[in-house]
Write a protein that binds this DNA or RNA. Structure first.
Length: 726
DNA sequence: AAAAAAT
């Protein structure tokens, strides 16, 4: 099978186009301006955005921007990023005067500020109920609406326009009372919206917002390559899967946004999950990140909300609101849907997806997570919240402050459930789901996603889900053949110089993610790389949220094409175009390894993962070997020998050493059951069914016992799992 | 042992 490199839309120009467009105007440089997290930026656009941006945006501006900005830093980088890097670093330091002279800590990534320009002339709090307050929306730009901005209208996006009615969504309110910035129009608008709200009809397009949401480079999922990913759905009356987004009716808003997102075909998990969720069934899905699962739940959930409308939640929100100085202030929000995620960055990422799929709808997504200004988050909530993405701790906080009520939460999603439990979130999760006002299972629809299905998750599923469908999706990308995995023996003392060699051999435009085991190690390595003149950044849990988000942005945008990271970045983060993952320190846990290398080779791209191995990594040897074999990778003979020895030692503890020492790789291969494994590695133990092990028949069965032992052949964790807690 | 997460 050929590897399709989906790279057409990931060029540097595309990345430039989504960079902060204010970066050269001095605003982002900080000068004491309060930090605004990415999702809240541009809220007060009227304050600090010149009107310069609201015009000239209409056509072709991205090209102009790219050209005018590229000399600024890209030019420097293509000559070797050393120079541009130091320049930027000095700027940053001068501007913020804090911390060591790190490029991303100094705010040189002037992307903060208000990258979207502003088209509000009108403060949002005047808006009242049911207003057009899709994030960052502003009705001024509605003026720009034309065929170009409507769904499907772009010639390069092909297909039919989902909005051939063109005026349907905009009938009435916006054109009459909405935009224009006049304050007088608002009251009439409010009244209107109370009556004839039809949530299934699209609101008018907003070119600026549309461009902001959909011009990113990491949207177009192209999963043709993954048609052979096995998926199995079990449970009573499981709905059949779809093959196309058109096979299920998700309404014109969703279909339009799918087109804008350039999603051509559903990924395997989407093919199955979408109809299951549309059928209002609870779902337990075992799927890796990178499989498209965020859209797999967002699309059907949002579609259902559009179809059903806000219902009681709207009434409740209204009831909790009160009038102050002639304005409605929402005291408590009653989201219709809640998505829980383990890490802040993942929450943000899900939120960003939600914004795309709620474009031109009346659904207003919000995100809350720790480490950021809670006051700002509260104000954002008060502007309306229909879909909430949250990390558990901050959500509990919000609930205790009376800012969020889950009484009318009809859709609950637990993403990366296993990770949340690993991180000790179970009490908070149970507090949120079971000990508050959330409707009980059965009355709500609950979807759980997890990469693994250990006992704790089974119990949680039993407690939270009703008559659920179990979905098992083979791994996508993580250990598949589009990632080339290399393991090299590198002593601790040689790691740094070896790393430099690797970095020097890497293309300038490729993103490289370097994993280390400790936060201290991350700082140290980043400092080292900095001193060596590399444009790098780092992310770990001891850095402030602001720094983490900024680092991520610097990396994503290519400004710092090297990022040193701890486990915080291993899972869930979808960064397109990561060409190389380097395990500077190997993790002790194979799951962690799989997640880490899964940061590259995403959505059909080819990727490279290089791991530094030495004596300290013996604990992962056996599992690492299994992964390499399963993914048909070249296995160094020394690793094979070590794996055998280690396994032998651990399974035959106490046996004399000579016993294990007497066997070589050849013996190991025979024991491994493959016989001829060297020439035919992939055949070993995989049953010809990649990612699933050999026992497909019983895979995923309810109450069965075969899933655990076979899932993915890795880690061995599954095998020890007793399914239903018996 | 380390990492993550509410302050």
């Amino acid at each position: 099978m050929s590897h399709v490199v989906v790279d057409g839309s990931h060029g540097l120009e595309q990345q430039l186009a989504v960079l902060d467009l204010n970066s050269a105007d001095g605003q982002g440089a900080g000068s004491g301006r309060r930090y605004i997290p990415p999702h809240l930026r541009n809220k007060d656009a009227s304050k600090n955005a010149g009107n310069a941006y609201s015009s000239g945006r209409q056509s072709g501006y991205s090209v102009a921007q790219v050209q005018s900005y590229s000399p600024g830093w890209d030019g420097g980088r293509s000559n070797g990023f050393v120079n541009g890097y130091h320049d930027g670093r000095m700027n940053g330091t001068a501007n913020f005067g804090r911390g060591p002279p790190r490029n991303d800590r100094g705010g040189r990534g002037s992307f903060r500020g208000n990258r979207n320009g502003g088209s509000f002339n009108q403060p949002m709090h005047n808006a009242g109920y049911g207003t057009y307050e899709n994030k960052d929306g502003g009705w001024n730009s509605v003026v720009n609406r034309d065929a170009y901005t409507s769904f499907g209208g772009r010639s390069d996006r092909g297909k039919s326009a989902f909005f051939n009615d063109r005026g349907a969504g905009s009938r009435g309110r916006y054109e009459r009372g909405g935009f224009g910035g006049g304050t007088g129009g608002n009251s009439r608008w409010v009244e209107e919206s109370r009556d004839e709200e039809d949530w299934s009809k699209p609101l008018p397009p907003n070119e600026r917002l549309e461009h902001e949401l959909f011009s990113g480079s990491n949207t177009g999922i192209n999963f043709e390559k993954y048609d052979d990913i096995p998926v199995e759905a079990t449970g009573t009356n499981s709905p059949g899967h779809i093959e196309s987004f058109h096979d299920v009716d998700m309404g014109e808003i969703i279909m339009g946004n799918i087109t804008l997102s350039r999603y051509t075909r559903p990924t395997p998990v989407q093919k199955y999950a979408i109809p299951i969720i549309k059928a209002k069934r609870d779902l337990m899905a075992c799927a890796q990140t990178g499989s498209g699962k965020t859209a797999a739940f967002l699309l059907p959930v949002l579609s259902q909300i559009y179809t059903d409308g806000p219902g009681e939640a709207l009434q409740a929100t209204k009831a909790s609101s009160q009038q102050e100085n002639g304005k409605y202030v929402r005291r408590k929000q009653y989201p219709i849907s809640l998505v829980l995620a383990p890490t802040r960055e993942l929450a943000l990422q899900i939120y960003d997806e939600a914004r795309k799929f709620s474009y031109r709808s009346r659904v207003r997504p919000c995100v809350v997570y720790g480490g950021a200004d809670i006051g700002q988050q509260i104000r954002d909530l008060e502007r309306g919240c229909h879909l909430l993405v949250a990390t558990p701790g901050r959500l509990v906080d919000m609930m205790e402050r009376g800012k969020i009520g889950l009484d009318y939460c009809k859709y609950l999603v637990l993403d990366e459930a296993d990770r949340m439990l690993d991180m000790g979130f179970e009490p908070q999760i149970r507090r949120i789901v079971e000990q508050d006002t959330m409707p009980p299972k059965g009355a709500r629809q609950t979807m759980m996603f997890s990469a693994t299905f250990p006992k704790e998750i089974q119990i949680l599923a039993r407690d939270f889900l009703e008559e659920y469908i179990f979905l098992a999706v083979g791994r996508v990308g993580s250990t598949s053949e589009n990632i080339t995995q290399k393991v090299v023996w590198v002593e601790e003392n040689d790691k740094r110089s070896f790393l430099l060699d690797l970095l020097n051999a890497t293309g300038k435009d490729s993103l490289t993610l370097v994993f280390v085991e400790t936060k201290k190690g991350a700082d140290a390595l980043e400092d080292f790389l900095y001193r060596e003149g590399y444009a790098c950044t780092s992310i770990h849990g001891d850095r402030s949220q602001r720094d983490r988000e900024e680092a991520l942005h610097q990396f994503r945008s290519g400004r710092c094409p090297i990022m040193v990271a701890t486990a915080v970045a291993a899972r869930g983060l979808d960064i397109s175009n990561v060409k190389h993952v380097i395990n500077f320190d190997l993790p002790s846990d194979i799951e962690e390894y799989v997640h880490r290398i899964g940061r590259t080779g995403r959505v059909g791209n080819l990727g490279l993962a290089t791991s530094f191995y030495n004596d300290k990594n013996s604990n992962i040897t056996k599992d690492l070997l299994d992964i390499l074999v399963e993914a048909k990778q070249e296995v160094p003979s020394w690793l094979e020998n070590l794996a055998y020895e280690h396994q032998h030692k651990s399974t035959n503890r106490g046996r004399p050493k000579r016993f294990s020492g007497g066997f070589g790789a050849r013996d190991y291969r025979q024991m491994a059951g493959g016989g001829n494994a060297f020439g035919n590695r992939g055949a070993r133990n995989t049953g010809g069914n990649r990612g699933f092990g050999g026992n497909k028949g019983g895979f995923g069965s309810f109450g069965g016992d075969s899933y655990g032992g076979n899932y993915g052949n890795y880690g061995g964790n599954y095998a020890q799992v007793d399914w239903w807690g018996n």
